[in-house]
């Protein structure tokens, strides 16, 4: 049957276009990494991308979906890049492979593929790896070390156990450890005074990465690829709780500014919570989702055992999406006064 259905006109949009724009929005942050760490970040991205495409191709073949259409949609590459950027730079190559493969095979395709995954695949990969390989996932390099590209590669492929400068902690972690060791005697201000680690706002070098995510995110918002609800409410949740505690006891709690520009806050706000598939879809639901994710991320990173909490908070909220959506269905045209 000659089947055509209205509307005959469609906007020039596609899943592929959306995904490509997300990838483009990640470029500033990749640029900052490149500037601070050197080309090793590209190696990490390449490993992730290759693994994602291979895993995607195998899974598509298994479920007998058209390869050209789905491989080209770019969604696997977005997942790969997010994982590569969320993992510590210079993480062992196999850790990236395991993370990406798990994200694509289990978190995405076992749930039905594109559009069907209830959890954010990149965050599933992060959570699985940090639970399985906590030491490796906490081994973050400081961004002001000077080591050659060859050394970087050697670390990544297990030829060198570690570099001296890889003190094994993010600024967030350093702060948490210092506060714990100080047992209430050391103030946050004193700890953060070490600008070699903490930079001006959220960690030497890392604040630039965060700023780059912010820039990319704002561009996505301006292009209407993402809405304002999720990022703003996520940052709002983070600021609300960190701000309240900071005002209450500035000696023991870092300022909201520090939290905004450290760890995965910006990446989370603009690239993780905004994942439409696993997130809430109603305007009100998005605000709840983002705000709660921000709150929980803060709680985990400050009071929990992990260096950062974005992954777990987002996954927790992913679980609540059906409930949130059910109770936040907006009133329809003409029915606003009712019920």
């Amino acid at each position: 049957m000659n089947f055509t259905s209205p509307p005959y006109l469609t906007q020039n949009v596609s899943v592929r276009r959306i995904m490509l724009q997300v990838l483009a929005a990640l470029l500033p942050a990749i640029g900052v990494y490149l500037w601070l760490l050197g080309p090793i970040v590209l190696v990490q991205l390449a490993i992730a991308t290759a693994t994602a495409l291979a895993a995607e191709a195998v899974m598509l073949k298994l479920v007998d979906k058209p390869l050209g259409l789905f491989l080209g949609d770019g969604s696997a590459i977005v997942t790969a890049w997010l994982i590569a950027l969320a993992f510590p730079p210079m993480a062992p190559w196999w850790l990236i492979v395991v993370g990406v493969a798990f994200a694509i095979v289990v978190a995405k395709h076992l749930y039905g593929g594109l559009g069907q995954n209830p959890f954010n695949p990149a965050m599933i990969a992060f959570a699985v790896c940090i639970v399985s390989f906590p030491a490796l996932m906490s081994r973050w390099p400081s961004l002001n070390m000077d080591a050659s590209f060859a050394d970087h590669v050697a670390v990544m492929f297990g030829q060198l156990p570690r570099l001296d400068a890889m003190n094994g902690a993010t600024p967030l972690d350093t702060l948490k450890t210092a506060l714990k060791l100080g047992e209430g005697q050391v103030s946050v201000g004193a700890i953060l005074a070490d600008t070699r680690i903490f930079g001006r706002m959220g960690g030497h070098g890392w604040e630039w990465v965060a700023a780059a995510y912010l820039a990319g995110g704002l561009w996505l918002w301006q292009r209407k690829v993402i809405g304002w609800h999720l990022p703003l409410s996520f940052l709002g949740g983070m600021v609300a709780l960190s701000g309240a505690l900071w005002l209450w006891n500035p000696a023991q709690f870092a300022s909201p500014l520090f939290h905004l520009f450290s760890g995965g806050t910006m990446l989370g706000a603009f690239f993780i919570v905004t994942d439409p598939v696993s997130g809430s879809t109603t305007p009100k639901g998005k605000l709840i989702f983002g705000f709660a994710a921000g709150l929980i991320a803060y709680l985990i990173r400050v009071f929990g055992g992990y260096p950062d909490g974005v992954a777990f908070s987002v996954l927790l909220l992913n679980l609540c999406v059906p409930l949130i959506d059910l109770y936040t269905q907006p009133p329809i045209f003409g029915m606003k006064g009712e019920k």
Binding site: S5, P66, G68, L69
Partner: peptide, 12 residues
């Protein structure tokens, strides 16, 4: 009105 059916395989 019929259930929309597209030959999704044809494209590959």
């Amino acid at each position: 009105w019929k259930y929309p059916v597209f030959e999704i395989k044809r494209v590959a």
